[in-house]
Amino acid sequence: MQNSRPYILSLISIFMAFHIGWGKETRSCNLSHEGIMKPFCDLCGCATNSGSFGFGTLSNSNFIGLRYVHQSFESRDGIFSDSPSSNEYLNTYQLWAQIPILQNIYATASLPYQDLKRKFENRSIEEALNGIGDASVMGWYKWQFYKKEDTVAVPYPVTRPLSKHSIQFGVGAKLPTGEFEERLTDRVNPGFQVGTGSFDGIFSLGYNYGGDKIGFNALLTYYLKGANKNDYRFGNQFSYVGTSFYRIPFNKFSLMPFLGISGDIYNEIEQFGERLADTDGRILNGTIGAECTLNRVILGANLAVPVAQDLFGDNVQAQERLSFYVNFSL
């Protein structure tokens, strides 16, 4: 593990493979504490919050904070261009935290409150849902790389210096704390729900590089979905995110603008052991934002814009997704 270059090349290859496959079908803070965007939730449940949106900040400091996420979708109920449509507006108010356990082990957790609205093109009524959403808890192990030993130079001391590269392994679960309503599953977008009603497994692998000014992080996450009491199972999901950021120091605070990509791939929904047609899909987003650190306060904003998408048989179109958060370092 002295040389992290093979791991970097492997992650880059994975991202390239995703883009090629798509084309064939149609995070004052020192960057040595490299950050990573951690998983949040899925499109097919938990109020359509994408797993690629992240569950952390660019800085890897432990924190407790609040985040607001706004998303909107347009759903078309039919195969024709003039078929009736609806607009869904999803607002999430999330309490989230990252808490240390041991030197290289930490935990992350989130609890969202959902406020959802749906407006129909051919009706005057408006549909609304609100309540506690699905909570998530994860445990993480951070594997820090050491600098490569230079046999020509003076021998390394007993404690070798750390490099700027690290990887993280995460295992956790999404809990069925939000209410699931089966009556809403016959709509074009069955993800218009406060919760999924299911217990889901979450498995993540991340890579971080944190230099003095420039940083990069990547995260791959797989969601293994369970069936709820209605024998309704949202499709398993694979999420990926890559982010590059740059630290700009000022007298009393630091600013880190960032650019990146994120995406999700969803399997079909199942009920009573049968797969439901046109309930799978994928989406690729371009992301831009910035994070500001002032003493123990971390402020951030993130905008995700769809670049390519094919959701629910192309009957659901995701719009821009916006997030604001304020965290307090522990």
Results as ranks from 00 to 15, higher is better:
109 A>H: 07
276 L>C: 04
219 L>K: 04
132 I>K: 01
3 N>S: 15
33 H>T: 07
138 M>Q: 11
226 G>C: 10
298 I>Y: 09
160 R>A: 11
257 P>F: 02
278 D>C: 04
52 S>P: 05
22 W>L: 10
222 Y>D: 11
162 L>W: 14
239 S>Y: 03
85 S>V: 13
7 Y>L: 15
191 G>I: 00
174 K>E: 00
70 H>Q: 13
239 S>D: 09
117 K>T: 12
210 G>K: 08
126 E>A: 04
248 I>K: 00
87 N>F: 13
211 G>V: 05
303 L>H: 06
200 D>L: 04
181 E>L: 07
325 Y>S: 12
70 H>S: 13
143 W>E: 04
298 I>G: 08
46 C>A: 11
295 N>V: 09
274 E>D: 14
257 P>W: 00
145 F>W: 14
95 L>T: 03
179 E>D: 02
165 H>R: 10
44 C>Q: 04
281 G>S: 03
38 K>W: 13
121 E>V: 12
304 A>N: 08
321 R>Y: 12
71 Q>C: 01
85 S>D: 09
50 S>Y: 07
300 G>D: 06
313 G>D: 05
186 D>K: 13
285 N>M: 11
193 Q>G: 01
289 G>S: 15
188 V>E: 06
18 F>H: 11
313 G>E: 03
315 N>M: 06
8 I>D: 00
18 F>W: 15
173 A>G: 01
194 V>Q: 03
308 A>C: 00
292 C>Y: 01
132 I>N: 00
182 E>Y: 02
241 V>R: 08
320 E>Q: 11
179 E>Q: 00
295 N>Q: 15
92 T>N: 15
227 A>S: 14
8 I>V: 15
132 I>V: 09
187 R>H: 08
75 S>C: 11
104 N>L: 09
78 G>W: 12
89 Y>A: 11
169 F>G: 03
88 E>I: 11
31 L>C: 10
53 F>K: 08
142 K>N: 15
89 Y>D: 13
169 F>V: 01
263 G>F: 04
201 G>W: 02
316 V>E: 05
193 Q>R: 01
318 A>V: 01
280 D>Q: 15
25 E>P: 01
103 Q>E: 09
221 T>H: 03
296 R>A: 06
250 F>D: 05
6 P>R: 12
176 P>D: 00
91 N>C: 13
251 N>V: 01
310 D>W: 01
308 A>H: 00
264 D>T: 09
224 L>H: 04
115 D>V: 14
91 N>Q: 14
77 D>L: 10
305 V>I: 15
251 N>D: 11
154 V>E: 13
208 N>G: 11
267 N>P: 04
48 T>P: 01
21 G>C: 10
217 N>H: 14
193 Q>D: 02
69 V>K: 13
198 S>H: 03
274 E>W: 07
144 Q>E: 11
56 G>V: 14
234 F>K: 01
181 E>V: 02
142 K>P: 08
216 F>R: 06
154 V>T: 14
108 T>W: 07
111 L>W: 08
295 N>P: 07
121 E>G: 09
193 Q>N: 01
271 Q>F: 02
48 T>K: 00
274 E>H: 13
68 Y>V: 11
260 G>I: 10
264 D>F: 04
216 F>V: 12
101 I>N: 04
8 I>Y: 08
213 K>W: 09
104 N>K: 14
328 F>R: 03
66 L>S: 07
207 Y>Q: 11
56 G>S: 15
290 A>Y: 00
